[in-house]
Structure formats: C-alpha cells, structure tokens
Design a protein around this nucleic acid. Structure first.
Lengths: 111, 111
DNA sequence: ATTTTATATGCCTTGACAAGTATATACTGC
DNA sequence: GCAGTATATACTTGTCAAGGCATATAAAAT
C-alpha cells in the first residue's frame, strides 16, 4: 500500500473520497450512506489517513473526517501526460511533443 | 481486475503506459527499457490490452504496442471533483463547501 | 528443415489485502 | 458507577493478482 494509485484502486475508498468531496462526515454517516460495515469504514479511513488523503477532528466521541486532496495531485500529474491525447488540439500537442522528442526520426530503437 | 483504477495501480503497468506515451514500442524494447522479464511484460500488456488501454499491430514476429488513452478518461473524470481543491481560490471553494453543508450545525446526524 | 528470435500462455507459489467477527477504547448522559 | 453510543483495532479467512519458470506458437534466418 505504497502509492496513491493503490489507495484509489479500491472502490469503497473512492466512494468515501467522493462523499467527503462534497462535505465532511462522521464515520457513522459514511457507514450509513455507503452501506458499509463500521469496521470496514474505519479501516479504509485509516488507510486514507495514513496516505494523507483525509484528516479528522474530534467532536466528542465522533470523528469528523474531511478530504485532503493534495495527495491526489500525484495521480493527476501522472494522468497529465495522457490528457493531451483527448484534449482537443492535437496539433498544439503534436508540436509540444516534437519539441520534447525531435521530429519523427524513424529508425533507431534507443536503449 | 475490473476498473481502470486497478489497472493503473500496478507500478510496472504505469511504467509501460508512460513509456508508450512517448512512442510505440515492441515487447522486447519494453522488456529492456524497464528491466522486466519478458513474460511479465507480456502479461501486463495483456491486461492493458483487455482494458483497452493499449493496442498492437503485428510486424513479423514483433508486436508493436501503442497507448490508447481514452480509457484513462474515467480516472481523469473522477479526479476532476478534487481538482478544484488545488486549483487556486481556496476561499471560493470554502464558500462553496459552506453552502453544501451549512455552518457547523452541531447536533443531528443525517442519513 | 533446423535453429534462432519474438511473444504469449499455463502452472505454481507467494504475498497482499478486504471483509467479517469480536473486542477494546473513549466519551456521554443518567 | 453504569449503560449506551461512536470509533478503532486484533485476529482470521478467502480471494486474487504478480512473478517465476517452463513451454507453446509463430515467423525469420541459416
């Protein structure tokens, strides 16, 4: 469980993050809204907390969780290299690419 | 192995996709560049192919793989809901949040 | 035709992780 | 203090996926 990608690979975890994206919630609220068992929710929250994707504050016996999406930037950044493929302007893109890796020099597999 | 998120959770698979993002490659090239065993590469490519993330054409005994990033849009779309958090204007955001979930109404767990 | 090159697949082992059940911890109100 | 509520954790179990090794398939080169 090392990278953000592992974290968001789990569907329930994504659901939790999505839920928290709209508002902060207590464990119990998450449990009810997502129809998961309480331990399951707590465990996923633990993972998310350890990954720095959520944080919580204490309110009596309740813990109020909120999303802390900075860590998701890693994933977003990684996706960036593909975004160009579907973001219209293929030409501007092409030019960009050609800068990065000079014009279609056919032949020659590099190392 | 159902969603795009599972696919990109695997580091070697991400490496392959990144490699293919810059240029198409044969299996052997991937194998050498990423220092993976040939079966490992083939298996990952299988997964990526089944997920529609890459495609290949045949060149004699070689298979030339290239990326087909449309399927990654799902992940990108999902991330979109968080992008606002880190795209400047935290204050505008804060206001938005406060609208969604009115200022600290203590008491009352909602469903 | 035989050998070599390139890729795919089958089998097997191992490790990781998600979920369940039970229990622990901690705070509240009586 | 005791009962109830809210959350976390320990332990166990089933599942599944990744990688290794061996082998199959197929085309190229000799």
């Amino acid at each position: 469980m090392v990278s953000v990608f592992d974290i968001i690979a789990e569907p329930n975890r994504r659901a939790i993050l999505t839920l928290l994206a709209s508002a902060e919630r207590t464990v119990g609220e998450i449990e009810r809204r997502l129809r998961m068992s309480q331990p399951a929710v707590s465990k996923h929250l633990r993972v998310l907390r350890d990954a720095g994707l959520v944080e919580c504050t204490v309110d009596a016996q309740r813990r109020v969780y909120r999303v802390k999406p900075e860590a998701l930037r890693e994933a977003d950044t990684w996706l960036e290299q593909f975004r160009r493929f579907w973001s219209g302007h293929v030409d501007a893109l092409e030019r960009h690419l050609d800068r990065m890796h000079p014009p279609t020099r056919r032949k020659g597999p590099r190392s």
